[in-house]
Structures are given as structure tokens and as C-alpha cells.
Computed example of a mutant assay.
Amino acid sequence: MPSLLQFTRCRVEDSVRDLLGKEISARVAETDLESDLDDAILAGIGAHALRRHLPGDILHRVQVFTATGSHALLLSNLPAQQFPPTPVSGFGDEAELAVTNAIHLGLIRLLECTPFAVRFENDGRLIRNVVPNPAASGTTSSWGADSEFFWHTDNPHQPFAPPGSDPRLYTPPYLTFYAVRNEERVPTEVAALDDVVVRLDARTRLGLMAPDFVVGAPDSNDGEATRSLSGAPVLETGPDGRHRARYDRGTTSGRTPEAQKTLDDWSAVLGTIPAAELVLDTGDFLIFDNYRVLHRRKAFTPRPATTARWLRRCYAS
């Protein structure tokens, strides 16, 4: 059975990359710009340069991504600045990353999305450093490394957002990443929910759509500031007629033995689905639909702290 994953891949030519890097570097050098305080300015700088220099076909693919119903988009070979050591504590100096942030936030603007943070994760900061934080050892968290992060969606304990809502109160519609370094060659795996649904038998599919599950917050969240979503389905049909899911194997449970059996069957099917293994390189930008895409990261051994794997993640709506 062929995969149903709709995945757009684009690569920027070296000459375009260099022009982008030169212009954005000159613009952000005029002042100190912080991602949490100056996100609109950084987005404006990045979007202006990207509109000027990206080839028309790539620019078009970015701009129509959210309207086409595609699952994921990868844009490679974007400018890379001089990077500081990996902030394995989870936090660093955002002003040092102004070029990277202008590119990241500029692309989110071109996607006609809004970047946002949530108060119960990452100290409420806009961009999360996905790094192997020693304090998260043994947890299935974006700050972990030694535990497999099985197929999941981010913040599944939140409801899905009605149109026009404040996205901070709901499951993030999109996840975006900029890759700083990945010398360990750790893949980020993505799979289309459609590829799961077509492999479910009717009983399991209907069982997943029943409000018989409890979904808790993942380890990356502040447990004192969150609460579980009880009486929720794992699988739904959204207003657009497409399936959407909420799931984290470590935090999702059935409220009845029948519901737990359905969840076990769902997990077994997840072990059989086709997936794209993306080894993100420096300067890669990835966006995917968090409602309709499951993602995972297997356990790995990080390099020394200063050069350990480092992705930058931002929610978008």
C-alpha cells in the first residue's frame, strides 16, 4: 500500500542562501533583537528577504502549504549563522540567534501563520531549544535523548481549536523547526494519520472515535499548570472532513477495558505504518500539521554538550 503522506521538499541554491544570509545579517546587526520581545520585527525582516530572494516556485509552495492540505514541508539549505554552543540547559541568549530567528519567524509569516508560546511549557518562551538536557534524562520529552519518543502529537491534552480562537488554549495546529546542528544524524520521523486510519479495522476506528479516553500532559509540560483531558476521543473528524488525532503513548489511557484494548490495537498498528525519516541538517526548516501528522524520535547518544543535537521549535497557528 503506497504512503498517503503529502510531503513537499525544496532546496535553496547556494547562491540564494548566501544572498539571504548577507541581507538578513545586515538588517539584524542594527540592534539587539530578542525572539520573545521582537518577534514581529524579526518576522518582518526575514519575510522581506525571503520574498525578495526565494525562487518563485519555492516561494509559492511555502505560501500555499496550509491551504493545500499537505502534511509536511521541508525547506533545506537556508542560511546558517555562527552558532554558540548547544544550550543543553534548554535556554540561551536569544539575541545571539537573531539571523536564525528572522529566517524561522519570517517563514512562519510567509506561511500566513502566527507563532505562539504556551505558559505551561518552556517557561512561556516562544522558541524551544530541542536539546539533550541532562535534567530530562529518562523522560520522553523534547529535552530527552535516552528514551524513545514514540509516535505522538504535541500537547494532545488540549482541545482542538475552533476557528478564530486564541491558539494558546488549544493543541498547536502546526509545529515548525529550524535545525542548528545534528551531528548525531538523528532522524525526525513523520507519518500521515491517513496511513494509520486506512490500516485500522472498523471496530478499532469506531472505538478510537468514542469519548472513552484520558489524555494527560507530556513530560515537557509543567504538570502543576496543566490538567488531563478526560472523556476525549483519540481520533476525530474535523470540520474540513479530514481525520485528526490526539495521542501520546505515555499519557493516553482508556477509561474502560474495552477502550484500553482499542488503544493497544491502535498502538500496534502504529508500529506498521510507513514514515519519512528526516535527518535534519543545519539550515533545514520543517513544518508539519500537528493534527494530521504523528512524529517520533528514537533514543540516541548525544555528542558532547557544546556540539550536541540542537533543533529550534516554534508552534504556529
Rank of each mutant, 00 (worst) to 15 (best):
I127P: 00
D123K: 11
N133L: 01
G124E: 06
T140P: 05
I108R: 06
W151R: 03
G144F: 00
A136M: 08
R119Q: 14
N129K: 07
R125G: 01
S147K: 15
R125K: 13
N122L: 08
L107K: 06
G124A: 07
T139K: 14
F120K: 09
A135T: 14
I108L: 13
R125A: 02
T114N: 08
A145C: 12
F120V: 07
I127N: 01
I127V: 09
W151Y: 11
E121T: 11
E112D: 15
T139N: 11
A117L: 11
P134L: 04
L110H: 02
R119E: 15
N129C: 12
W151H: 09
A117E: 11
L126G: 00
L105V: 09
P134K: 04
R119A: 15
L105Q: 11
H104T: 13
V131N: 00
C113E: 10
D123E: 14
G124Q: 06
W151C: 02
P132T: 09
W151M: 04
I108G: 08
A145I: 01
T139L: 14
I108M: 11
S142C: 13
F150R: 13
C113S: 11
H104M: 13
P115V: 06
R109E: 15
F149I: 09
V131A: 00
P115A: 07
N129W: 01
R119D: 15
S142Q: 08
S147A: 15
E148S: 14
R125I: 01
P134T: 03
L126H: 00
S147M: 15
D146Q: 01
P115Y: 08
T114G: 10
T114D: 12
S137E: 12
G106N: 08
A145E: 02
I103N: 12
N133M: 03
I103F: 09
A136Q: 04
S147F: 09
W151P: 04
E121F: 10
G138D: 05
A117P: 09
F150C: 10
N133F: 01
I103H: 03
G106Y: 03
C113Q: 14
L110P: 01
V130T: 02
W151S: 03
V130R: 01
P134Y: 00
T114M: 13
L126E: 04
S147P: 07
N133Y: 03
S137Y: 11
E121R: 12
S137W: 08
I103P: 07
I103L: 15
V131M: 00
T114A: 14
V130S: 05
F150I: 07
A136V: 02
N122Y: 05
L111T: 05
P134H: 02
S142E: 10
A145Q: 02
P134M: 05
A145N: 12
L107N: 08
F116T: 10
N129T: 03
G124Y: 03
F150A: 14
L105E: 04
R128T: 13
P132H: 03
R125V: 04
V130K: 00
T139M: 13
L111V: 12
V118N: 05
D123N: 15
L107V: 06
I127Q: 00
